[in-house]
Design a protein around this nucleic acid. Structure first.
Length: 481
RNA sequence: CGGGGCGUGGCGCAGUCCGGUAGCGCACCUGCUUUGGGAGCAGGGGGUCCCCGGUUCGAAUCCGGGCGCCCCGACCA
């Protein structure tokens, strides 16, 4: 039991713990190019499960997938004024190709609003073509000075949805719908319950009228912006001339939305559920839900045979189960390895169990060994996985609420909370950006969002946290990733 | 981009002050014994000591220059 085999604990150094988990659970690795990452099979399998669930949800809400190109003419990015200003510092620009300097520089997409708009302009003529609801799964690139695996890399994977609507109300409503989709996905699949809400002017997407976000609380009580949904109004359609003829025969500009979640969610997953042993995966997105480990399979292979048979019974119930039949490492090593990788449930089967028809079942949370009949283990597995999923959500929800401070009225109190435990602080706000800036400087916390109705406090302070004006709305403050 | 630290087998490090044939732990390979919480023994493979130049009989070590990475701050999903 060498000390070097253990992870740094979360309490000792949360950020070292995070980095180690990524390497030790074989989620990702650094690439030769600074700031980009290689996602390894275990990490990518998690992403694929997330993609599948999200993609289904997008299809159910009427979207179709497309693929837009990696390279965008510089002039496109420059068309929308705020959009350029927001993205300019992070652009990677291609100036040469085929051994020659290009006449017009190309930008490696930081996001695809501009291209999709230029295409929609071609495809849309009448209100009958609307709404047009597209999505793409792609990589994007935003040059970052300071990077962290999954949380902030120069290149990352995401999905970006782009929709065009015939009127403002419908587009706004769709922005909210997709925010809701994200929230459901995070709660139901990732067991990572966010607080949703509207972004302040200073925090919104470059080029948006309104941005909404999902803010999840990590175990160090910092906020992770885990998904965003934007109402873009007619900003882009005016610049890219996306017009349609209305039912009344009038020519109008379209109203559009965009929304995205990225591989950053995997970082969120780690920091939401991981413990000092390693990753803990919600069953719904775990690449392997049940790992079956044969123990003391020395003589005739009968233990392995039984393990395989139990595994295939689990599989026939739709459970993602695997047998770890490697004969060159000890069972103990396997236990640690699969725990590190976050597999929810482990079954151990040895000669004793062969005799008795039983099996040892261990859950990733709690870790207590249960000895139960094999048939029971198989039969109860689906409900055990469901319970595991529910437990994770409940734990995350409880943690979020326990570290939310409502009704705070003094900046000093925010500062104190940030210096000690951290967490989400709810206060009143007049809407004055100076107060926002001031609090950021004094406390290190940023304005995460104006919480959606159901996250709002029963009693909202009547005065702005800045102390001078009346409060116009409730806002959430937190240190953020 | 500002402040700090570090570059030595795959990974983590010692060696650098005080120059003398490159070492440890983990990992890896072979064999035997093991296997219900990170196995033991025996044998074995693997290093342009970040790069370039200089000093020296001799440089991982000293000097000069360059490059890269990490951490902390300002900007960001």
């Amino acid at each position: 039991m060498g000390k070097n085999k253990q992870l740094t604990s979360r309490s000792e150094d949360f950020s070292a713990w995070y980095n180690e988990i990524i390497f030790r659970a074989e989620l990702a690795d650094h690439s030769p190019v600074k700031g980009s990452m290689v996602i390894r099979p275990w990490g990518y399998a998690i992403w694929e499960n997330m993609q599948r669930a999200l993609d289904d949800m997008f299809k159910q809400t009427g979207h179709q997938n497309v693929y837009l190109p990696l390279l965008i003419p510089m002039s496109f990015i420059e068309k929308e004024k705020e959009h350029v200003e927001g993205f300019k510092p992070e652009l990677v620009v291609v100036t040469h190709a085929g051994g020659k300097e290009l006449e017009e520089a190309l930008v490696v997409r930081p996001t695809s609003e501009t291209v999709v708009m230029s295409m929609m302009g071609k495809w849309i003529q009448s209100y009958r073509d609307l709404p047009m609801k597209l999505n793409q799964w792609a990589n994007v690139m935003r040059w970052e000075l300071r990077t962290r695996l999954f949380l902030r890399t120069s290149e990352f994977l995401w999905q970006e949805g782009h929709t065009m609507h015939a009127n403002s109300e419908e587009a706004e409503e769709h922005t909210q719908t997709m925010l809701g989709v994200y929230r459901c996905f995070m709660e139901d699949w990732m067991a990572m319950p966010p607080v949703t809400g509207l972004k302040s002017e200073s925090e919104k997407f470059a080029g948006a009228i309104k941005s909404y976000s999902c803010e999840a609380m990590m175990q160090d009580n910092k906020a992770l912006q885990a998904g965003t949904s934007h109402f873009l109004g007619q900003n882009f359609s005016r610049q890219f001339d996306v017009r349609f003829q209305s039912a009344k025969g009038k020519e109008e500009y379209g109203w559009n939305t965009s929304w995205g979640v990225s591989t950053r969610l995997i970082g969120g997953l780690i920091m939401t559920h991981g413990d000092d042993m390693g990753l803990i995966l919600p069953p719904k997105i775990a690449p392997i839900q049940v790992i079956v480990i044969p123990v003391k399979d020395m003589e005739n292979g009968s233990v392995l045979e039984k393990a395989n048979s139990i595994c295939s019974q689990l599989k026939s119930q739709g459970i993602r189960a695997e047998v770890d039949g490697r004969d060159f490492i000890n069972p103990g090593s396997k236990f640690y390895e699969w725990e590190r990788k976050g597999v929810p449930i482990r079954l151990e089967i040895g000669p004793r169990d062969l005799e008795s028809g039983q099996v040892v079942l261990v859950q990733r949370i709690g870790g207590k060994k249960e000895i139960i009949p094999q048939a029971e283990a198989v039969a109860t597995m689906p409900s055990r996985l469901e319970q595991f999923q529910d437990l994770l959500l409940e734990m995350a929800m409880t943690r979020r609420e326990n570290n939310s401070h409502r009704g705070v009225t003094e900046i000093g109190e925010i500062k104190e909370i940030m210096e000690q435990s951290g967490g989400f602080v709810y206060t009143g706000w007049s809407g004055d950006p100076e107060v926002e800036q001031n609090i950021k400087e004094l406390t290190g916390a940023t304005l995460r969002c104006l919480p959606s109705e159901e996250f709002q406090s029963a009693k909202i302070p009547t005065d702005c946290i800045g102390g001078k004006e009346k409060s116009e709305m409730e806002v959430v403050w937190a240190k953020a990733y």
